[in-house]
Design a protein around this nucleic acid. Structure first.
Lengths: 340, 340
DNA sequence: ATGAAAGCGCTAACAG
DNA sequence: CTGTTAGCGCTTTCAT
């Protein structure tokens, strides 16, 4: 093999198999019409040469990349991981590959990512949340591909939506605690600025409390997102200092909820005897800790599955005759457990 | 705009800016030599047309994709998320984009992913662990790009390695418990088959116990990976049934360790009074739970940072004169906390 | 600092 | 079922 320096191309495979490059191309597609015999011969030649199909050329010529761009706030978050996992599963038989990026809860970083990703010519793009920079909106609107906003219900969606109302979900939990006779209820969240879902949960808390005629001023801001276990513990400490009479704490996530729980335990405060605690997200830990944590299951996987299905359907139609933007609702469910 | 149907190309931008396409191309590169005035004019034209640079064409012509393929076992794992996060940070100023995939701890799935990813012509590829299918090894060896195996110290590396000995790390913890006078120590892990790092940790446990002249037969297999909180709790229940005299349990991860801890607490078994527990990975929860969990910090972030740096250095040199494969060691550290 | 020509490796479109 | 021709949108290379 004198030409061993260069990576082999379809032409090399074609020569070796004694067919035209076009036939080799067909042999590497699923549905294309090539005789079984020819296909075998071609694959043998490819294997012998160590040929690896070159998507970059295919992408350019066919104007299809097979990329689905997906942007989430954080890699290290079981909820978003579940969403992406379910999306992957749902898309297993389509030939889309996920191009995953994360923003660290920063919409400027989201803008950078969206711009980078669009250069790769994905066939659709999935973003988390409904709040974006103006430039991000413009880029997405003009991209000419399906866009899906998830984990939220934006008032003015860019295109499709698969989500739920974070505010309403927390409302369910307020109702639950109130039904149990608790009135002095606080909320533990992050700084409102960048984590819009966290902010919506806080809004929902305030709205629901007011609807019950209760004061909604027991609010602790635990710093920039993500508010994790440590921040939840610190926030609970602050809560107990400022409002020693608090009867229940609703936390922006199960992680902060668990932190709050441990802080109570360190102080000998009984949960749920002295204080009830609620979380958000149905993370593993909420089912495992002692006591188990009352939470809201937002059905992260269902969001991913529905998004995958929607994308798949949209891409079956040519861009011309795609249906009107969809708005798919997921319905979070309160899961009452040991913590109140 | 009569041609609004089509996505604008560099030619459109060039016409509008009154320059040649080549100049537009240069204006979109960082270092290229274009006069400030021309560059401004071109960017204005691009913005006006809604032009978005097309990487697919650039990739083909320049034979560079800017992709770094990264394969991890699971998205939903804080350790791997930290590694990827640190890698991203380290590579921020290079112009590499991570193409992330996960295998669900299945080396057959890894093979599928490697093959898919290589078609995208990444400039380097990072995999987790040192055990692969034969075909995966062959594909990686012939890919003609730098390969990095991480989170392990394979005996026969494919190319570069950034990792540590999982066995030796667990040995440290055995030594620690033995130094505290404990002798009846058990190990909680997963089924050995697919999670090779978990298997290595178990091997390390057995070897270290034997080195101390202790029996190493208190082994619980908690099912296929990942062994999470629930499985850890179940495994501890099994352990207590089969070996009620056990003095310490070393768990394959902090998640299973936390599960084991809660199981003890549900049964009124004092930790560390009656039984000591150790985890692995320095997950957030190990620092937050009550008691805090003794663990091993494998420095996930450092693995990512070092890998990113290595890839960056390797890609600076043309393929011809790259240095010999590197073997970079990370040194896990025992973190003694409240659980024993 | 800018331009002209050629072509990266594959596949759409058409032909047979 | 298989082949031919042309070209996707950029960038390499060589000029100027």
């Amino acid at each position: 093999m004198t030409r061993s320096a260069k990576t082999p191309t379809m032409i090399d495979v074609a020569q070796r198999a004694g067919v035209s490059p076009m036939t080799v191309s067909r042999a590497f597609k699923r549905d294309a019409s090539v005789s079984d015999d020819t296909r075998r011969k071609i694959h043998a030649a490819a294997e012998a040469l160590g040929y690896v199909f070159d998507s970059t050329a295919s992408n350019l010529r066919s104007q299809k990349t097979g990329f689905l761009a997906v942007i989430i706030p954080s890699l290290n978050n079981a909820n978003f991981a579940d969403t992406v996992g379910a999306m992957t599963t749902q898309l297993r038989d389509s030939d889309l590959q996920i191009l995953l990026g994360y923003t660290d809860y920063d919409i400027e970083e989201e803008e950078r990512l969206v711009e980078q990703f669009l250069r790769r010519r994905p066939e659709a793009i999935v973003v988390t949340g409904g709040k974006h920079t103006g430039r991000t909106r413009r880029l997405l609107q003009n991209a000419g591909i399906p866009v899906v906003e998830t984990w939220d219900l934006p008032e003015d969606p860019i295109d499709n939506v698969v989500g739920f109302s974070n505010a309403a979900a927390v409302g369910q939990m307020v109702d639950h605690f109130v039904a149990r006779g608790l009135t002095r209820i606080g909320f533990i969240g992050g700084d409102e600025a960048s984590d819009t879902r966290g902010f919506d949960r806080r809004r929902g808390f305030v709205a629901a409390m007011r609807a019950h005629g209760l004061t909604a001023d027991r609010l602790i801001a635990g710093g920039p997102p993500p508010v994790m276990m440590r921040e939840g513990a610190q926030a609970m400490a602050d809560m107990l200092t400022r409002w020693p009479d608090v009867q229940a704490a609703i936390c922006v996530s199960d992680l902060s909820g668990f932190g709050a729980l441990t802080e109570c335990q360190r102080r000998g405060i009984a949960v749920p005897g002295d204080i009830s605690i609620g979380g958000f997200g149905a993370y593993d830990i909420s089912a495992q800790c002692l006591p188990t944590l009352t939470t809201i299951d937002a059905f992260s996987s269902e969001i991913g599955r529905a998004t995958g299905q929607l994308v798949d359907e949209l891409l079956r139609n040519p861009a011309r005759d795609r249906p009107a933007p969809q708005r798919i609702m997921v319905h979070p469910r309160l899961v009452v457990r040991g913590s109140g």
